[in-house]
Design a protein around this nucleic acid. Sequence first.
DNA 1: CAAGTCAATGACTCGCAGGTCACTGAGTTC
DNA 2: GAACTCAGTGACCTGCGAGTCATTGACTTG
Lengths: 243, 243
Amino acid sequence: MPRPSDPHAKSRLLEAAERVFSEKGLDRAKVEDITTQAGLSKGAFYLHFDSKSDAFKELLSEVLAHLQCRIGEAKDGNLPALNQGFEHALEVWLARDLAMFEFIWKNRALMRITLEGGRSADYQHLIEHFASYAQSETEALLRQGVAAGIYRSSLDVEVAAAFIAGGYDRFARQLVRESKKPDLKKRLRELRWMVITGAGTPELISCLQQLPAEAERGDSMPPSESAAGPVAASASAVLSKTV
Amino acid sequence: MPRPSDPHAKSRLLEAAERVFSEKGLDRAKVEDITTQAGLSKGAFYLHFDSKSDAFKELLSEVLAHLQCRIGEAKDGNLPALNQGFEHALEVWLARDLAMFEFIWKNRALMRITLEGGRSADYQHLIEHFASYAQSETEALLRQGVAAGIYRSSLDVEVAAAFIAGGYDRFARQLVRESKKPDLKKRLRELRWMVITGAGTPELISCLQQLPAEAERGDSMPPSESAAGPVAASASAVLSKTV
DNA sequence: CAAGTCAATGACTCGCAGGTCACTGAGTTC
DNA sequence: GAACTCAGTGACCTGCGAGTCATTGACTTG
């Protein structure tokens, strides 16, 4: 005897909420804007959410949980990847970055609100918490690299982590404001190259500079670099022994 | 015959506004909170400001103008400083960073709202605009350094600038949330060292590693670094000729 | 088809906070 | 000390928008 509810009602509301929140922020978004865009009434909204900020929380926590997961995976998957050779680890690194930033691009409206702390007072801590999580995971990654002899032992790991996390953070903040999709792979390869040249040992860097620039695969060199001969595997040889 | 106004009224209101805005953000701050804290009435507030957001704008634009000024100076003063030798330029660099971050620390409450875009929808563009300004100025600085032979010519200046601006940005965002003042000079020296090792030519780096770690002056080396002999002036010699 | 359920509606309530303005009285001038 | 000015006051007005709830009617079940 029950009347079945529209199974799409809640998701339509969430989609509309995403649009409205990303335009106006939590405080200035009106529940009626959301319901109008979703083609539903105010009452329907309160059938699915306790309050305006409840819907907001649902949106944010979804995204942040996903990202946090990815970053954790990156660290935990790093050592195993290193054991299969440095070249392999490089590719895994790029693939993970790519997956993460593809996700950010796909959810850029939401990510933008997230990065801007919901443009509201109550949610800044979420993004700050996430940022410091990212930074500490980066730190762990760097320590692994130092231990493996990939990064200079003179590196101030803490500062470098803040720096690198900051670089990725800046990229993300730019990305969510972009209107057409940039070449993520290219940008991320450049970022990775910055990290390597900034933190890598001289031997690592000179080895990598010998690698052929197979731009279309996932290699470390920025395409602008003029590559010398194909000394290829030497880099991973140099490094895999140190692990 | 006129009754003279309390000359401190407006500044008391601005101070109170700073406190209230930094706690609640623009949208959630109440005018009455501000006036209560300032020990004045609501009416007095509207004697000095057209609206709540008017007061907010006055606070933000003050800070941003100041910062923008400093960054501009940094770029414009760089070439002259380089002409007096690299060592000198290094000190000027640190001094400027220090002045900037001292300012940020002193105005951390306000800076925090600023960095968080006022926790309101209308002012995000201000901070984004500022960030991209900082990035482009960094890019210009890097180009000067590359031209002077200090930074590697293979450097992707645009990406590096985003990275470095991101690093400073991250530091600023952490600083404004700190409750007791960290050793700014130390942190900034570390940041500078990151930039140098990340972007500098190998010759530059090895030269600098020879410099004695006169930690108390303004030198480039992170204190942890164990310094070799006092080859001091060689670095600036190497570089001053290239300028 | 009658009875019953419950998703959905939207007019309504209500508290809140931005902004106003008639009034007060401190200080000034002559 | 009378007249005057204007910074400052705070009760009040007002619009807005979050959240409610009596009502509707689509759909199920027997």
